[in-house]
């Protein structure tokens, strides 16, 4: 189930995109408080942001980004109704995508 929330709003000629992803962002250095075992690294490595199939921004992350990551960026050339698509891939190969229309 896609847990990603995207908002894309046009103001003047700038579209501001705000996105919340659902992910534990484990950096692999934390220990389980009960067992003392290291919790396996599990974090988003790459986020690709597109509009109308053209890449606007690519993010590379590690486990230093906070749990349930927030990302905001701005771009020019968007129009109301255009799709903004965000796709992430984590270090375990899992991927998730979501699309919102510019309002």
């Amino acid at each position: 189930m896609s847990e990603m929330k995207i908002r894309a709003k046009l103001s003047g000629d700038e579209t501001t995109v705000k996105c919340l992803m659902s992910h534990p962002m484990e950096n692999g250095q934390r220990k389980d408080s009960k067992t003392g075992d290291l919790i396996a690294a599990h974090f988003i490595q790459e986020v690709i942001c597109k509009t109308k199939d053209r890449i606007v921004l690519t993010a590379s992350w590690n486990g230093g980004v906070s749990k349930n990551p927030y990302l905001s960026f701005k771009f020019k050339g968007g129009a109301v109704g255009d799709p903004v698509e965000i796709i992430w891939t984590d270090n375990q190969g899992k991927t998730e995508r979501a699309t919102a229309l510019i309002s």
Binding site: L57, T58, A59, P69, F75
Partner: peptide, 28 residues
């Protein structure tokens, strides 16, 4: 980059020509 983190580099963003020089996120 969070200088004194065990792993200092946290995030890097590649911007296409249409992207404005602006990014916002949350880090540890």
């Amino acid at each position: 980059i969070a200088v004194d983190n065990p792993i200092p580099l946290v995030a890097s963003f590649e911007l296409a020509e249409s992207a404005m020089p602006f990014v916002s996120t949350r880090i540890k």
